[in-house]
Design a protein around this nucleic acid. Structure first.
Lengths: 330, 330
DNA sequence: TTCAAATATGAAAGGGGTTTCATATGGTAA
DNA sequence: TTACCATATGAAACCCCTTTCATATTTGAA
C-alpha cells in the first residue's frame, strides 16, 4: 500500500509536507499542495489510522459488547449507539457474547489491545472484576441495561424493580391471584430487580408467595423458559398468570404451555419484559414492559462520548422510562 | 499505559527480550522469562495491537457491512459470521448502512484506513465502483446476500430467481390468478432476480402480467411496502395475492391491507421472503421463503478467511438452499 | 530600505512494537 | 582442550505517521 513516503518521493517534498497536506495544515504553498493532492488521488493513497493512533493516542473507535444481537432489544441498542458514535466520527467495534462470560472477558482484552477510546458494556459478568482492566488502563466505559452489583459506575438503563411491580400489579388488577415468576440468573442485576419487584407486588397486595411458583434459571434464553415452565407445571398447582422476565424466556414459556395444552390467556396469562421485531405486524401478542432500547443506546453513547471528549468522568446513573403495553396474552 | 520499554527497564533487559517473552520465543532463559512475566502481570501490561499491526501488516480484524442490523435476517448473518471469525482469532468490526449508499462508502474508507484484513459486504451500492478501493488496496472481500451486477467477485447467497418462482408457483397452485408484486429497487440484485422469477412464474402458468400489479419502490423497508400497497389498491383491480420481496416490506403491505379493511388471507394472500424473530412464538404468519441466514454468514466468512489466510483468491459463487414455509397468510 | 512577523519546508525524534544481525555464553562431541 | 553448535541477549533498523524545532523565504509595515 502506498505511504506518505511514496508520495513524498514522487512529489519531491518531505514527508512532513505530505502530512501537512493530508491534515490541511495552513502553511503549505498552494502550488505544493496541489501537486501533492494530485498524487494522493492518483495513487489512491489511504492513510493508515493505526499509525496515526500510535502517536495521537486516539483510535476514534468505540467498542460495544452485547449479549445477543439477534434479540431486537440489543440490536436496537447497537444501531442507535452506532449512529450516535458515527455522528461524532467514531467507529464502532462490536462484540456478541452469547451470554458467555469467557467471551466477554476475551473481548474486553482484545479491545484494550486495540486501544479503543471507550466501551459500552451490557455485561453477562456479575462481578466487578470484569471492569478492572478497563479502569487500570483508564478506558472510559458506560454500563448499559444490566448493572454490576457493588459498582458505582456510570450506567444507563431502566428501573427494573419498579417496572416489574407495575406489570405484576397490572396482572393483579386483572384478577389474577396465582402469579408465577419465570426468570434468569439473579446475578444479573436486571433479573434480580425484576424478581424483587415481583415479590414486592405480591406482598403489597397480600398475595401468597408460593415457592413452586418461583422459577429461576440460568440464562435468559428460550430453552430455559421452556424447561422451567414444564418443571413448574409438573410439580405444583397451576398458576393463573406467569410473569416472565424477558422476551426470549417468554417464547419458551409460551411454547411449553402450548405443548401442555394450556390456552393463553384463557388458562394462563403471560406478561413479560421486552418486545419483538414484529411490533406492527399482527397485533403483538405479549403484554409487556417495553424498554426504550434505542434511546438507551443513544443516551449511553452520548454519556460515553462526553467522558471521552469532555473528560466528564463523573459517574452518572440514568434511568429511562418504560411503557407498559397491554396485549393479547393477558 | 505501560509499554515494553517500561517492562524492559524494570526487568533490566532489552525490549527485544520482553518482546520475545510476550511472543513465546524459545530462546529466553527460564529465569529471565519468569522475571519478565512477573512484571508483565504486575504492571497489567496489555500489548498495543496497532503497533504490532504496523509491522506485521495484519490487524486480525474483519469488517462486516450490513444494511440493517435490526432485521433478524442480517442479525443472524452477523452473529454467525462473527462466531466463525472469532474462532480463527479475528475480531469483527461492523457497520450498519441503513441502506444508505454514502454511509456504505464512508465505512469502506474508514475500514481501509484501519487496515482490515478482509471485508464481508452486503451492499446497498449497485455499482461496481464501490469495491474499487478494496481491489486497489488488495483487500480480500466477499459479497453476501446481494450481488453487484457485472461483478464476477466472490459471493454467497441464494438463488433468488428460482426461489421467487417457487413461491409464486405455490400461490398459483393455491388457485390465485391475480398475483401482484411489491418489491424494492431493481438495482439491488436480489430484488431484480425476485422480480424476474415472479414474471417467469406468471408466464409459465399463462397468467397475465398486469402493469398495475407490479410495484417497485426504492428501499426494502416498511414505509415503502405500505405506500406501494395503498397506491396499487387505489389505481387498479384488487389482486387475490401479493408476492412481497422481503419481510420488512411485507409488514408495510400487511398494515396497508388492514387499514383498507382487506382480510389476509381471505381477501388477499401474502407471500414473502425472509422471516422474523418470532419463529417459535405464535405460529408465524407469513408464508415465505426462508433464507439460511446463519449459514450464509458462516459460509461467507469461511470463504473470506480462506482468501485471507490461504491466499485462495479464486472467485467463488456459492448458492445456498432456501426453504418454503407455508403459513397463515396464504 | 529595513526588519519583524508570517509563511513554507524539512530533519529528526518519537509512538510501541517486531525483526534482523551481531555478539556472548554454555554445552557437547571429538 | 578444541571446535562447533545451540542458547541467550541486545543494538539498531523499520513499520507509517505526527510533531517539534530549526531554517529559509516572503510579506508587509514602518
Amino acid at each position: 500500500m502506498v505511504t506518505i513516503y511514496d508520495i513524498a518521493k514522487k512529489a519531491g517534498v518531505s514527508i512532513t509536507t505530505v502530512s501537512r497536506v493530508i491534515n490541511n495544515h495552513p502553511y503549505v504553498k498552494d502550488k505544493t499542495r496541489a501537486k501533492v493532492k494530485k498524487l494522493l488521488k492518483a495513487t489512491g493513497y489511504v492513510p493508515n489510522s493505526n499509525a496515526s493512533s500510535l502517536v495521537s493516542k486516539k483510535t476514534n473507535t468505540i467498542a460495544v459488547i452485547l449479549p445477543d444481537i439477534t434479540n431486537i432489544f440489543f440490536a436496537k441498542i447497537l444501531r442507535s449507539a452506532e449512529e450516535r458514535a458515527n455522528s461524532k466520527n467514531f467507529t464502532v467495534i462490536y462484540g456478541n457474547t452469547n451470554e458467555d462470560f469467557q467471551r466477554e472477558k476475551n473481548y474486553i482484552k482484545t479491545f484494550i489491545e486495540k486501544r479503543i477510546d471507550g466501551l459500552l458494556l451490557d455485561p453477562i459478568a456479575t462481578d466487578i472484576s470484569i471492569i478492572q482492566p478497563l479502569e487500570q488502563n483508564n478506558i472510559p466505559f458506560v454500563l448499559i441495561d444490566r448493572e454490576i452489583k457493588g459498582s458505582q459506575k456510570s450506567h444507563v438503563g431502566i428501573h427494573n424493580e419498579k417496572e416489574a411491580i407495575r406489570i405484576v400489579n397490572y396482572l393483579i388488577k386483572k384478577g389474577k391471584k396465582n402469579i408465577a415468576l419465570i426468570s434468569a440468573s439473579e446475578e444479573l442485576s436486571v433479573y434480580k430487580d425484576r424478581k424483587k419487584g415481583y415479590i414486592k407486588a405480591l406482598k403489597g397486595s397480600g398475595l401468597e408467595l408460593k415457592k413452586d411458583h418461583l422459577k429461576i434459571g440460568t440464562k435468559p434464553i428460550k430453552a430455559v423458559g421452556y424447561n422451567l415452565t414444564k418443571e413448574m407445571l409438573k410439580s405444583s398447582a397451576v398458576p393463573d398468570a406467569i410473569f416472565v422476565a424477558n422476551n426470549f424466556l417468554a417464547i419458551g414459556v409460551y411454547n411449553a404451555l402450548q405443548d401442555l395444552d394450556f390456552k393463553v390467556p384463557a388458562d394462563i396469562a403471560i406478561a413479560c419484559f421486552d418486545d419483538f421485531a414484529t411490533e406492527s405486524i399482527i397485533p403483538p401478542f405479549f403484554t409487556s414492559i417495553i424498554q426504550p432500547a434505542s434511546k438507551m443506546g443513544t443516551v449511553a453513547m452520548e454519556l460515553l462520548l462526553n467522558k471521552i471528549e469532555g473528560g466528564d468522568s463523573n459517574r452518572k446513573k440514568i434511568y429511562l422510562k418504560s411503557k407498559l403495553s397491554v396485549r393479547r396474552s393477558t
